Amino acid sequence: MDCILRDENAIYYECGYSSDNALYLRLGSEAWLITDSRYTVEAREAARDAEVVEASDLLKAARSLLRSRAVKRVVYDPKDWSVAAMRGLETKLPHIRFAPVPDLSHRKRMIKRDDEIALLKRAAELGREGFDTFARYLETGGLGSREKRLHFEAEAAMSHRGEYALSFDPIVAINANAAKPHALPTDLTLKKGDLLLVDAGLRYRRYCSDRTRTAFVGESVHFGDAQRFASPRIQKAYDLVRKAHDTAIARARAGMTGAQIDRLAREVIEKGGMGEAFVHSTGHGVGLDIHEMPYISKRGTTVVEDGMVFTIEPGVYFPGEFGIRIEDMVVMRNGRAEVL
């Protein structure tokens, strides 16, 4: 399939190297990685199965290669291209049809190879270690700290003090701020008796981890599944979310659609009387990108197969009060979901 790629992770998947200024072009059995002089030394060392082309104008170099080959149709992902960049190809190469294929690379990457699953598992393990490190900080020096400081410390803990890049900007939210699924850090300070929601992950050899825990801040702090809150209302909500999380993982099967797996978790929360508080999807694929296919949502039509890696992350949110989310990454293996 003749294609042109612009997304950094899509390019990395194809040739083992990418940068923030690169194009990947495949025409038949030939492939080129086009980048500028800042990256060509590294590219020639790391790229596989692609000729490295140095260019100050990437689109011009791509057009030159396309003109030199008898090609009539090239596919691309419209989500990765600006209108201006694609017009820079289409208007000057009118004899070629540029065919949009949404999620082109994500579809190709949905079923992970064994080596990719191993990298994702290691990322998840390192992410769990980061949570443990952050819990120790909370016990020894976290009380009285603002969310902004807690956010800083979570970044340090999750990155293993800079050893690894993060998958995304961590979410660290106390009490009412946790009612915002993607809360930003505020000046709220942490004290005993608080609820603390932490959503964070790291990258291991470019592959992402993603984990969320909601914890009670008492004499000790841990991010295990068993939590005991002082408020009966919060405890009821927490137990319901945990049941939804565990049920979806236990009952998910290969051959189900994303919507059917989403329903496993959503039905538990609805039956518990908190359905309206579950405001997002049950999960999403994880790989080189933190959000990939398959999407475990009400609209998820993808049939889940062995080798797919995705999150299970039900949650409930009560604005002005509190929010709860529990999230783990799973791989579909031998027809069942296995926690990484």
Rank of each mutant, 00 (worst) to 15 (best):
V303T: 13
P185G: 12
C15L: 00
I111L: 06
T133F: 11
R336P: 08
K72A: 12
V286T: 01
K148M: 15
K191T: 15
S18M: 05
R44H: 08
I174N: 06
S64D: 14
G300A: 13
P294F: 04
G323D: 04
F310I: 06
D246R: 09
D49M: 12
L23A: 00
V52R: 06
V83Q: 15
S37F: 04
E116T: 06
H222E: 09
D115Y: 08
K148S: 09
L150P: 03
G273H: 15
S64R: 10
A62S: 10
S37A: 14
T301V: 15
I324G: 02
V316N: 10
P314A: 04
I290T: 04
Y76G: 01
R67M: 09
L196D: 07
E267D: 11
K72R: 14
N334F: 01
C208Q: 00
V279L: 09
E129Y: 13
I261L: 15
F322K: 05
V71Q: 13
E305C: 14
A118I: 10
I34C: 00
R253F: 11
R211Y: 10
R6C: 09
I174D: 07
M158W: 09
A118P: 07
K180L: 11
S281M: 12
F278R: 14
L166V: 03
H160F: 15
S220D: 14
D210L: 09
G287M: 03
G283Q: 03
C15D: 05
L65E: 12
G258P: 00
R107A: 09
D57H: 08
T247K: 08
L288Q: 03
K298Y: 14
G162Q: 07
I11F: 05
V53T: 13
V330H: 08
D262A: 07
E90Q: 12
N175Q: 11
E313I: 04
A156P: 11
A337K: 05
K72E: 14
D194K: 05
P94V: 10
S167P: 02
T301H: 11
D306Q: 07
V172T: 12
D194M: 03
P181W: 01
E276S: 08
A50R: 06
L120S: 05
F216C: 01
R69K: 15
T282V: 09
K236A: 10
I269V: 13
L184G: 15
E45W: 09
Q235G: 02
L23D: 06
R211K: 08
D115W: 11
V41L: 14
L58R: 00
K236H: 14
V198H: 05
H106V: 08
P294Y: 07
V286L: 02
I111K: 08
A250P: 05
A337V: 02
G88A: 03
L120D: 00
A55K: 07
D194W: 04
R63Y: 13
E321M: 02
R63G: 10
I174F: 00
S159Q: 01
L93M: 11
G28S: 14
F310A: 05
A265P: 08
A165L: 13
Y317V: 00
R213Y: 13
E54C: 09
K72G: 14
A99M: 12
F310L: 00
E51A: 10
K72P: 06
